[in-house]
Each structure stands twice: as C-alpha cells, then as structure tokens.
Nucleic acid binder design. Sequence first.
RNA 1: GCGCCCGUAGCUCAGCAGGAUAGAGCACAAGUUUCCUAAACUUGGUGUCGCACGUUCGAAUCGUGUCGGGCGUACCA
Length: 563
Amino acid sequence: MYSIYEKIREQIETVVKDAILRSISKGLLPEIELPPIMMEKPREEAFGDFSTNIAMQMAKQARKAPGQIAQIIIDRMKTDGTFVVRVEAAGPGFINFYLNNEWLYETLDLIDEKKEDYGRVNIGNGKKVMVEFVSANPTGPLHMGNARGGALGDCIASVLEKSGYSVTREFYVNDAGNQMEKFGASLEARYLQKIYGEDKIPFPEDGYMGEDIIDHVTEYISEHGDELAQKSSEERRKDLVEYALPKNLKRIKDGLARYGIHYDVWFRESTLYSGEIEETMNILKERGFVTEKDGALWLNGEKAGLERDEVLIRQNGLPTYMAADIAYHRNKFVKRGFDKVINLWGADHHGHVARMKAAMDAIGVDSSRLEIIIFQLVRLFKNGEIAKMSKRTGRAISLDDLLDEVGVDAARFFFNLKTSGSHLDFDMDLAVEQSNNNPVFYVQYAYARICSLLRKLAEDNIVVPDAKAVFKELLSKPEEIKLIKRLAEYPEEVSLAAQTLEPSRLTRYVMDVASDFHSFYNACRVKGEEENLMYARLLLVNCTKIVIKNVLDLIGINAPEKM
RNA sequence: GCGCCCGUAGCUCAGCAGGAUAGAGCACAAGUUUCCUAAACUUGGUGUCGCACGUUCGAAUCGUGUCGGGCGUACCA
C-alpha cells in the first residue's frame, strides 16, 4: 500500500458494490450495468470525509430518483471492519461517508514507515517514458521561455519517476540545419565588422542579433587573431562555428546544472544526417505520404490529415527542420523503444503540434504516444514594469541573470506555481521578498521551524518516537486533524500530478501543508506537554517534516534547516 | 481570414472525465508573543465564473456563436 486513499477507496467500493448487489437481488433496484464507483472528497467538511455520486450515476438506468437510490443502498450497507462509522444520503443524491480517526493514525504509521518514499506511487509500471525539454538553440544564451520549460520539464520528469515510470531526460541539440547556417553567417558578419568596421559589413537580416555573438568573435580574435579574414567564407564560418558552438553548449549545460537540471541524454540533431533522415523519408515515400513538386519533397497534407502540404526536403536538397524532427521522433519511438514521449514546447511552437502528430501516424507510430505540452510564454516584471527579453534584440535577460537575481529556489518554485497553460507573469521583486508574500519563504520557513523544534527537543534528549509506540489517538484537536488529513493526500497528489502532467499542483499542495502546519504550531505546543501527548505531536511534526522535504526534493527546491 | 492557448473576487490564480451554498493567496482592517523561529497565527466582506444561445434533472465545467488578450499561420526553427 502506498496511500491511505487507496485503502479507503477499496473499502468504499466494496461496501457500496455489495449493498447495490444485495438491493438488486432483493428486487429493490433493477438489474443494471454498474457504473464505476467514484470516490471523491466533498468540498465541505460538513458533507463527511468522502462521498460518492454513484446513486446519481445510476438514476437514469434505474429509473428512480437519485435520493431514493442512495437511501436503498445505504440501508443495505455493511460497514463492519472498515473506517466508516456513519453514512448518509444528502443533497441531490450523494452518499456521504464519515470515518473514524483510525485512517488518520494509520497515515502517520505509513509516513513513518515509508519516510522518503512516502508519496511514491505506481501508475507507470516501469513504462519507458522520455521527457524532452528546453532543447534551446545552441546559438545563444538561455532565455525566460527556456527557464519556464526547464523547471516544468524537470518537475514533470521527477513526478513521473515518483509514479513508477522509467524516465529519461533529454535535450535535443540543434547543431545542424539552417540555424547553424545563420549562426555561422552571424558570427562571420560580426567578425568582419570587427576587422573592417561596422559600416563596411552588412549584418544578415535574419541573423542572431545578440551581444553574445559579438563576444564570441571578440574572444576569438584575441585568441587567434584576424587571419580568418583571408580565408574563404565557407572556411571562416566553419571555424567560427566550431569555436562558438561548444562554448554555447557548455554554457547551456552549466546554466541548466546550476538550475538543478541534469540530462540523461544530449541528442545531437547532426547525428540524424548520416542516414536516419533519409531512412525516414523513404518510409514516408513507401507509405505514400509524400509528393514531389517544384523540385522539393513534400509531406502530403491531404493524406496526413493536415491543412496543407509541408516541405520536407527543400529545392536545394537540404532537409527542413520538420524532416529532421520526424526522423528524431522516429528515433525516440522506433530505434530506442520509448513507450511514451513527452515534449515541452513554448507557445510559439504550437503550430508544429498537429504536424508532428500527423507525421507520427504517417510513419506508423501511434501519435497518442506522443504528448506535447505547450506552455505559455513568460512576462518578467521588475519594479512593476515589464522587463523585456529577446534573443534578437540583444537585450536579453538570460536564465543566468534570473538566477543571479532571485536564486534557484524562487525560480523553480515560481515557474511551477501555475498550470503550464496559463500565461505567467514572473514578479522578480516578489521572488526575492523575505516576507509572507513570498510563497517560497513561507514553505521553507515552515520546514526550518520544524527543524528548529526538533533541535530544541533533542537538546533535552527527546527524540522522534516510533509511530507504533505512540498514543496517536491523543491527536484530536481540529488543527491536528486537519494537518494529518493534508498529509494523507500526498500520494494522491503525486498520482494526479503525474496523470495531468501538472507538477504545479504539488507546489500549491506544499503551500497548503505549510499553512496547516503553521496553524497547528500556533494552536498546539509540543515541548512541555504531558509526555504521551508530546510524543504524539512530535510524531506528527516529524511526519510533516518528511512530507515537506519529499515535495521540495521532488520539485528541486532546497529545504533549509535554519533560516 | 484560419488554427491553438487564455478570460473566475480589486490583483495573481485553483477548480473544468457536469453535481451539494464557486475556492485559495495577496491587498485592506482589527486582534494574537512572560511559551518550541511573529519570515507565524486568528477574525472579517467581496463574484453578471467575458457575453449569448444550446445539451442536461443539474453547466464555471460539454457544444455552437461572439467579444477581448496572447501566439502561430515560411522551401524559419
């Protein structure tokens, strides 16, 4: 068992199902096909600990009023040997269950037993899943979009790991194709401008405007001089790219490492050019998905279910980004055998989603195995004003800048505070504020407070007891009960975060844990209480510590023992 | 024009495999510390769920239309 919810769900399902079957056999309900019995937590505490809407689900088929059905079921319900102490029909036909506190005390046993594994669930069954994220162009520094995608992707990967999937984190390095051409052309232009003067050499219209390009050539010249001016353009670009690309990649790698992100695989686009793109194009040809026109090779839109045709191989013989990407995804699924692939793309790439999915079906890979998460872009706020970031204008606020200003914890926390679909305004002033306005501090403070309490008790040789040896039934104050209920939700939260691919719910969850803890702390003393009560509370405090730590570890945020 | 995302309290957002009086945090106001970290807690009001139709016993949640904001619509990536 990994979760008390699991146990309660089983109990309620069994009890309800048995009651329904008994009712049917007595002719009180018609013989119908049973809908799945859903257990939910009522919004209001007054509606019991858990409820089910099964009576309403059955109403149509059974041709009876939901309230009536609920009562029939309840009258035949046998709850011996379960947590359930009272059942009632309420509202439009809900069946509400009231539990004794035993399930809460078992929660503490479970947390104490599992410790850092509390919250681990198994919905993945070891399935191989890849999360590909950030995959920033190695033509410049990481920007805010990468920062959000990075925090999100890394946490999604962590949540899936906790949920029983075998996870690979991957970064796709676009070290080939058109943008490398543009990168080379941009470097070359800046190089020649340095030597002959800015007004003498035009900068390519679609070149990379960033300061970093200039920095590269400045460094290059100081290390290697200006003899490249004499060489051919082709050679010049090649040398400059070979100089700058590894530097950019290292910077990206270091920046992400600082951000707490470590990849299993850095996959280079260039490796696809020695056969795999061609192979993939041949498969598309064989399956009849391509047409040739105007000297180019196209993906047939009509056949693939797209609005229009898409170029795969240009007139000049070079594959498009899309051709490489199809080959890349074929590599993920076919060559490397991932059951499921999750890609994180910024909103500016959403147009590519339908095309990639269609392309997967076209090469014979079920496109439902490819999940693409589109996250909305970020607006950075500082001093109440929008702080612009743009790789093109050269006035970019990079990931490094952000981390310098707000730190890793705040960045990761804030980027995981909202659902990926929501537009995100990042308030840099709030992120560094050391007050209760700042949710990062709020949560970390709760943890530090717990650690401090434990230290104080340890000074008097009072240590956390074994859960089994504690009189847990002494925990009965509203603040204690509320906190334990919250802790009991954790595995469920992990499971939901994995299913919806929304780690933001864990960030919000840990804020709730912190809040419930602070309330408990203000209402209940530990040190100095009667011994049995003190140990019971001490156990609860330590369980809270375990849960907060587990969540913070999961989302990659520091849990400070002192603040 | 077409496509995708978003529109819920003054602000930032949850809720959206339809279900019980729509929730948090912030802001604002008043209180709480001889006591384990007051970076904390307690109490207080707020909503045409963008708008309009439709499906349903029941819609913030599903469908259609519409308005507003963002993004996309290249032989760019």
